[in-house]
């Protein structure tokens, strides 16, 4: 099956967008990823990833309401498209099937 390649970072961003359910935009995505993964992620990386995802058709965006702390500027709110959702699904299925075939998952962890 042919599908679009999705990098690991892009996958995390896409997942975050999916989790946030319509409330996703640059800053909150950054904070969420930092909180969840502990990585030091920077805003420009997130923006770049979101742009790539949009180019690939996995997210769509629209301009939201302005807020005061943004100096009256609007935010770009992202939502996952059906295509993005299916991609995530497929990735998840692939991983689950591998995990299921793994006989002793705990052993693997201790050996690390």
């Amino acid at each position: 099956m042919k599908r679009t390649y999705l990098g690991e970072f892009e996958e995390i961003v896409l997942l975050t967008v999916a989790v946030m359910e319509g409330g996703a935009y640059g800053v909150v995505i950054t904070h969420e990823i930092v909180a969840q993964t502990g990585r030091s992620v920077r805003l420009n990386q997130i923006h770049a990833a979101l742009q790539r995802l949009e180019d690939k058709g996995m997210v769509k965006s629209e301009m939201g309401e302005p807020t005061a702390e943004r100096g009256g500027r609007r935010k770009r709110l992202f939502t996952v498209t059906a295509y993005g959702r299916r991609t995530l699904q497929e990735i998840h299925e692939v991983r689950v099937s591998f995990w299921n075939r793994l006989l002793n998952p705990l052993k693997l962890t201790t050996s690390l």
Binding site: Y25, V27, R70, R73, R74
Partner: peptide, 14 residues
């Protein structure tokens, strides 16, 4: 520019 700058300002405030 608008979204980038907005994000940057929000981040700055935070």
């Amino acid at each position: 520019l608008e979204e980038v700058q907005g994000d940057l300002h929000e981040e700055f405030a935070w």
